[in-house]
Amino acid sequence: MSKEKKSYQATVYVRLKEGVLDPQGTTIKRALGDMGYNGVEEIRSGKFFEVSFLSANRKEALKLVNEISDKLLANPVIEDFKVEI
């Protein structure tokens, strides 16, 4: 087994939790109505981050990205996050 670290790329999706008001989404939905798109029931906004880093293996990589997402990229009081590697 090689101890060399490999390069990983992760994508972190951050979105407001269910039930948390999303003023940006609400405003975008209203604008869509003004544009004639009346069938839009709901818009929820969010953001995503691309994280590139070195790690020993996939498990370690996942652990690291989950940690930084929980500590900094998302605020667990109002947001959920999803990590893809």
């Binding site: 948390v20 008001l21 003023p23 940006q24 405003t27 009081v77 109002i78």
Partner: peptide, 11 residues
């Protein structure tokens, strides 16, 4: 302190 801030409802 508990809680969080969201964008103003008026944006």
């Amino acid at each position: 302190l508990p809680g969080a801030m969201l964008r103003n409802s008026s944006l």
